[in-house]
Design a binder for these strands. Structure first.
Lengths: 226, 226
DNA sequence: CGACTGCTTGATGTTGCTCAACGTGCGTGG
DNA sequence: CCACGCACGTTGAGCAACATCAAGCAGTCG
């Protein structure tokens, strides 16, 4: 909601994405790079999706309001597009994206983006690959999580932060208990209880948002068995 | 498992998909159209995904075996690709596809398909649109169903068959109670009980697989409220 | 200080799974 | 042809997992 800084580093953002120098130059005039603070909304659901958003770095949650309840779909980190399918399906943002940590985001003009897809087959293939990967990952998550109880989903999430996001067994949770609940389909009370149980069983140490995983193997076991 | 009839109607299958006459001719030599009976496997998970599968008509379920349990992801009808992301992500089938009704499926050579994407921007954009639509639909389903209890998910499924598949309030369920359970994450007992409850409350009439929806509004309400 | 937000903990009710029993239809092999 | 196994379907009882409701505590901000 505060002033956001505009930058010009689109080149480094999309290097290695099969764009020619000319194409990148063309993009430069049709893009902006913006800083977001935690809690700031990057994409708002139910708005028109006229720009493509590419997360350069930081941490972002994708979420939506469903029948009055907030539901978080996933947490994603840098170097990927966010909510890209909304751009191509019907130019309408079906989901929101909000920074959970300080994040840099490139906004690219959708018209230019579409033009590149039609003119540059390698670029188009790159997008197709990204969309496919995201879809497969998502479906895997879905089948995995559906078969799990709350305890398994929370264990999975703790490991996700440790492995995929912070690359360390010690980290600060970037989200509240309520948001964890939105993410794993549980209430904030259940999240609280489960984390307390993990602490009592000496699997993790947790103080407010500071987490230390003390028994990774066991947490993994819980995560897999559900 | 029986003999499958090979056909040559690739042209009508992919007409209107932005392919030139030459390209379609090229495809003709690299494709086959096959009939599947209910229960026959179209795509088997954990195999290499060297061909693209396009459902011409019929009804197909996408499913996977997760930790020993069968989980159905979705039911799809004709005129769309099935499991396309597996082809582009890593050439590896992450999910299975099985006919639940008599279905006609085109198999297309992946190499030729990829070539078209790189050479024909309109075709590539068409694929991107399809993938995006499928992704958005899938995410919507996910957020919808996660917030629902079994009763709401089953109500939703009954309406899905009525509206999206059979376009009628009377139809025959194409799948067993067990498969409904696999689809809505419930046991066959819970499915059975819920359907019996619906019948007792005069919302539906059900005899074996024959379903008549008698109170669509109420079913809709249950579906939405969860 | 008081209001507020985020978190925790306990008591209680509901949901839905598991287990068990039983009926039905179908295909297979003696 | 009948006997048997087997998948499917239904129903009941008991139990575990969670949500809900309620109360209270710690930190923060005006």
């Amino acid at each position: 909601m505060q002033a956001k800084e505009k930058k010009n580093c689109i080149y480094e953002s999309l290097a290695g994405r099969n764009l020619s120098k000319d194409e990148i130059c063309e993009l430069k005039g049709n893009c902006s790079v913006v800083d977001f603070q935690p809690g700031e909304i990057i994409i708002k659901e139910n708005t028109l999706a006229k720009t493509v958003a590419y997360i350069k770095n930081g941490l972002v949650k994708v979420h939506a309001l469903v029948h009055g309840k907030e539901k978080t779909l996933r947490i994603i980190k840098g170097n990927q597009y966010v909510c890209l399918p909304s751009n191509f399906f019907d130019n309408f943002n079906h989901f929101s994206a909000t920074a959970v940590e300080k994040s840099e985001v490139c906004f690219l003009d959708l018209t230019v983006f579409k033009k590149f897809i039609k003119e540059n087959g390698a670029f188009a293939y790159d997008i197709i690959h990204d969309l496919s990967k995201s879809q497969v990952t998502n479906l895997h998550n879905q089948v995995e999580n559906n078969n799990k109880k709350t305890i398994g989903r929370i264990a999975h999430l703790l490991l996700f932060f440790a492995r995929d996001i912070y690359d360390s067994l010690e980290y600060c949770l970037p989200i509240s208990r309520q948001e964890i609940g939105d993410l794993v389909s549980a209430t904030r009370e259940s999240v609280s209880r489960t984390l307390a149980d993990f602490q009592n069983d000496n699997i993790i140490e947790i103080d407010r948002k500071k987490v230390i995983i003390k028994n990774e193997k066991f947490l993994e076991e819980i995560s897999v068995k559900g």
